[in-house]
């Protein structure tokens, strides 16, 4: 599903160049549920942005399925992301001026689907996430957990093959976090490949694999259902 070879990312600030991703090599197979961990500033969000095709400032090879993302331009990347990827944010990022239903409809509206189909898909998702009653409310009228539920609904409404989540439960308390994680497991069982960033080991256990970043280096890659592998840091 995903193959990264020698991914590098740096930021230039003034005269100094700070490297935040260093020669990352990573293969993620279809149906995996990968958790990225590591201390603050290790480069987890940077990596996720590369995977989400939101960032263009990296070097190396990134194969998404059979598509060489490193050879695509901005527009082609945006098209590819639109087809394959769903994104869940730590601070939800719902649009304040749109209702729950309209927020969920957003990714569909960018895919030039007939309005009728879109309505059906939104209705399905609302139903599945049990938030039908909330569909005409605005985000400000929801609790944090409910907002993140909508955020996830929005990310998966167009049935993406890859779901990326950057600290999806960072702002939630543990019960809500557990519900969200169970939802992820459910989606994963149905075939969605998931990559999430989290600080919580408890959340990580819902997944099948943990990779760890330190100062931009990939330092650990552990398959939770097999024995762990250390990747030597040079």
């Amino acid at each position: 599903m995903i193959e990264l070879k020698n991914i590098e990312r740096s930021y230039k600030t003034g005269y100094t160049e700070t490297w935040v991703l260093r020669r990352i090599g990573l293969t993620i197979k279809e149906g995996e549920f990968v958790t990225v961990m590591g201390p603050s500033g290790a480069g987890k969000s940077s990596l996720l942005n590369v995977l989400a095709l939101l960032d263009d400032g990296w070097l190396g090879e990134y194969w998404l399925g059979e598509k060489p993302a490193h050879k695509l331009n901005r527009k082609q990347r945006a098209d590819l992301a639109r087809q394959r990827i769903g994104m869940v944010f730590q601070s939800y990022h719902l649009l304040d001026d749109l209702t729950v239903a309209e927020n969920i409809d957003l990714p569909l509206s960018y895919k030039s689907l007939p309005a009728k189909d879109r309505q059906g898909m939104v209705a399905d998702i609302l139903d599945r996430f049990k938030i039908v009653a909330k569909k005409d409310l605005f985000p400000s009228q929801l609790s944090g957990g409910q907002q993140q539920l909508v955020g996830i609904a929005r990310a998966v409404v167009h049935a993406p093959a890859l779901l990326l989540a950057d600290e999806p439960t960072g702002n939630l308390h543990s019960t809500q976090a557990r519900e969200i994680m169970e939802l992820f497991c459910e989606l994963n069982r149905q075939g969605t490949t998931i990559v999430q960033v989290t600080h919580s080991l408890e959340n990580a256990r819902y997944g099948s694999r943990i990779v760890e970043l330190h100062d931009g280096w990939l330092t650990r890659d552990e398959n939770l259902h097999a024995h762990s592998t250390e990747v030597g840091a040079k």
Partner: peptide, 15 residues
């Protein structure tokens, strides 16, 4: 921020 979210959700430049 609003537009970044839209772009992250698949809105192209034209949109």
């Amino acid at each position: 921020a609003d537009i970044a979210v839209r772009m992250a959700l698949g809105a192209g430049r034209r949109i």
